[in-house]
Design a protein around this nucleic acid. Structure first.
Lengths: 333, 333
DNA sequence: CATCGTTGATACAACGTTGTAAAGCGGTCG
DNA sequence: CGACCGCTTTACAACGTTGTATCAACGATG
C-alpha cells in the first residue's frame, strides 16, 4: 500500500506537499502539482483513513442503531439512510440491537466514543434518556420515539395524529368494533398510536373497549396473526383492526383469512409503515405512510449539524405522513 | 475523552504499563494493576480504536457489499452476517451498490484498502474477476455467484440443483407448461437457475419453450408482476411458474390473481430465497430455502481465515438448501 | 561472588496523516 | 538598499496506541 511518503519520494517533493495536493491546497506550483498527481496515479495512492481520522479527530463513520433488519420498515429506512449519508461522505455502520435493552446498551457502549462521529438511533426497549449516560458526548439523533422534554435531536412523524387518521378512516367506512393490535408496555410509539386510536374512537362517539386492544410484544407477522386469532375468538369479534405496523397487519390478514373471513368485507385492516410488501399483498394493505426518505434525510442532516456544533439547541423535526388507502379497507378486493 | 496518558497520570505509572494492563499482559505487579484498574474505571477509559488499528494494522471492520437492503433476502442475510461478525468482534459496514456496475466499482474503490480488514460481497452486475483489480490485496469472500475457476473464496448453494428441484416439484404436480421468470443477460445466478430449469424440463421429457422464459432486469415485485402479465397474455399461458426469487413470485401471484386466476389451481408458483414474507403471503409461497444462517456463518468464517492467512488456497463452500412446499403449489389454498 | 533468568517497569519510536510555524524565494515599495 | 509582502515549500510535532529495546531489581544457580 502506497503512503504519502512513497508518493513524495517518487515525485521528489516533501510529504506535506503531497498532502497539500491531495487535500486541494491552493498554493502549489503547477509543475510540482503535475508531478505529484502523476506519482499519485502511478502508485495508486489511497489515503489511510484511520490515520487521517486520528489526526483530524473525525472518523467519517456514523452508526445506525436499529432493532432488526428483517423488519422491512427498518431495512427500507436503512437503505435510505445509507444513501443520504453517502452524500455527506459518511460511511454507515449498522448495528442491530434485536430490540433488547441489553442489546441497545452493549451496542452503544462498545461503539465507544471514538470510532464514530455520531449515531442515528431507533430505540425500542431502551429509554431515550439512557443514551445520554451511555454515550456521553456522542452526537445522537433519535428516530421514531417522540419525547419533547428530552434534550436530544429527534425526527419522526406525529404518531398520535397518524393513528387518529388511520382509525378515523375505519370509522368513515362505518365500522364500529374497531380493534387495535400492537399495544406494548414499554414502547413510546406504541403508547402514542394507542392514544391516537382512543382519540379517534372517542371523537366518533364510539366506546373504547379494553378487550379490543391486543398487545404484541414483538411486531412480527407471527405476533399479528396470534393477536388477530385472539381477537376473533371473542364473543363479539371486531369488524376492523388497526395494526401498529405492516407486519402485524400481514399476520392479522392471514389469520383472518385462515378462519374463513373476508378482508375487508368481514374485517377491514389498516397497517402502518407503508412497506412495499403491503402494496403487493393480497389484499393490498391500507397503511399509514410516513415519508421515509424525508426521515432519512432529516436524520442525517440533523446529525451533521449537531456534529458541527455540539452546543446548538436540540431540534425536533416532524416529517409528513399520508394515509395510503388500498384493498384491505376498500370494497373491491 | 480519557486517553492512556490520562489514566497513567492518575495511576502514577507509565503509559505503557496502562496499555499492558488493558491488553492483559501478564507481568504487572498486583498493586499497580489494582491502581491502574481503578484509574481506568474512574476515567471511564475507552481505547481509541482508530489509533489502535493504525498501530496494529487491522481495523476491526468488514464491509458487506450488497445490491439493496429493500430486497428482503439481502436484509435477512445482512442481519445474520451482522450477528456472525459480532462473534468475531468485527463491526460490519454495509454498502449498497444498487446493483449497478458503477455502484459496485465506486464502493470498492472508495472503501479503500485501509478502513476494512476484508469484504463480503454479493455481486450482481459486476463480474467477479473485476474485484481482484479493484480491491487489490483486500480479502474478499464472494456470495451467491458460483464460478469455480476464479481464485476467490466463495459461499453459496448449488443453484443449478436448487432450480432443478423446484421445477421437478412442479413437474411432479402434473404441470406441463412451466414458465420461468428472472432470466437475466448478465447475472451468473440467473444463468445457473435457468440451466436447472431446462435440465428439469428435459429430464421430464417436456419441451423447453423460449416463450415461457421471461426476463426480469430487476428482481422486484413489480418486475414479477410485469413478467407474469406478459406470460399470461400469450395464446397458451403457463400452468406453473418458477420465479428466481420470492419478490418476483409475490408479484407474479398478484398479477395472476388480478386477472382472475387461482393460485395454485390455475397456475402454481414457486419462489426462491424463503423470505419470511413468502411464508405469510396469500397463498403462502412454495420456495427454495437456502440455509441463510449457514451462508452467513460460512462467509464470516471464510473471511476470518483468509485474513489470518492471505496465502491459503481459495475455498468454495456449498451450503445446503431445501424446498419449502406451501400453498402456492399445494391443493388446499 | 559472578552470572543468569525472571519479573516488572519504562523510554522511545513508529503507524500515516495533517496543522503549525517557519523559512526560502522573488518581487515591490518606501 | 533594506523592509516587507505573497507565494511555495518544508521540518516538526502531534493525534493515541503498541512493539521493541532497555533497564533495574531480585533470587537462584554455577
Amino acid at each position: 500500500m502506497a503512503t504519502l511518503k512513497d508518493v513524495a519520494a517518487l515525485a521528489g517533493v516533501s510529504v506535506k506537499t503531497v498532502s497539500n495536493v491531495v487535500n486541494g491546497y491552493a498554493f502549489v506550483k503547477p509543475e510540482n502539482r503535475r508531478r505529484v498527481e502523476e506519482a499519485l496515479v502511478t502508485t495508486g495512492y489511497r489515503p489511510n483513513l484511520g490515520a487521517r481520522n486520528l489526526r483530524r479527530g473525525r472518523t467519517g463513520f456514523v452508526a445506525l442503531v436499529l432493532p432488526e433488519l428483517v423488519v422491512p420498515y427498518f431495512a427500507e429506512l436503512a437503505g435510505l439512510v445509507l444513501g443520504a449519508a453517502q452524500e455527506h461522505e459518511w460511511n454507515v455502520l449498522i448495528e442491530q440491537t434485536l430490540g433488547t435493552r441489553e442489546g441497545e446498551r452493549d451496542t452503544l457502549a462498545s461503539l465507544g466514543p471514538h470510532m464514530i462521529d455520531g449515531a442515528i438511533v431507533s430505540p425500542e426497549a431502551l429509554q431515550a434518556r439512557d443514551f445520554g449516560e451511555l454515550a456521553p458526548g456522542i452526537p445522537v439523533v433519535m428516530l421514531g420515539e417522540h419525547s419533547v422534554d428530552l434534550p436530544m435531536d429527534h425526527v419522526g412523524i406525529d404518531n398520535v395524529e397518524a393513528a387518529r387518521a388511520a382509525v378515523a378512516h375505519l370509522v368513515g367506512l362505518g365500522r364500529t368494533r374497531i380493534a387495535a393490535i400492537g399495544a406494548h408496555p414499554h414502547r413510546g410509539t406504541a403508547a402514542q398510536r394507542l392514544e391516537g386510536y382512543r382519540l379517534a374512537l372517542t371523537e366518533a362517539g364510539l366506546p373504547v373497549r379494553d378487550e379490543l386492544v391486543a398487545t404484541a410484544l414483538n411486531y412480527h407477522r407471527r405476533d399479528g396473526a396470534e393477536a388477530m386469532t385472539r381477537l376473533l375468538a371473542a364473543a363479539e369479534p371486531p369488524d376492523a383492526v388497526f395494526c401498529f405496523n405492516d407486519l402485524l397487519a400481514v399476520g392479522a390478514v392471514r389469520a383472518a383469512v385462515e378462519r374463513g373471513l373476508r378482508v375487508p368485507a368481514d374485517v377491514a385492516v389498516v397497517g402502518f409503515d407503508n412497506t412495499e410488501e403491503g402494496a403487493y399483498s393480497l389484499p393490498s394493505l391500507t397503511t399509514v405512510a410516513p415519508d421515509k426518505a424525508a426521515i432519512a434525510r432529516a436524520a442525517v442532516d440533523l446529525l451533521r449539524r449537531r456534529v458541527e456544533d455540539p452546543e446548538r439547541p436540540p431540534e425536533h423535526v416532524r416529517t409528513p405522513f399520508s394515509l395510503e388507502v388500498r384493498e384491505s379497507t376498500r370494497g373491491d378486493a
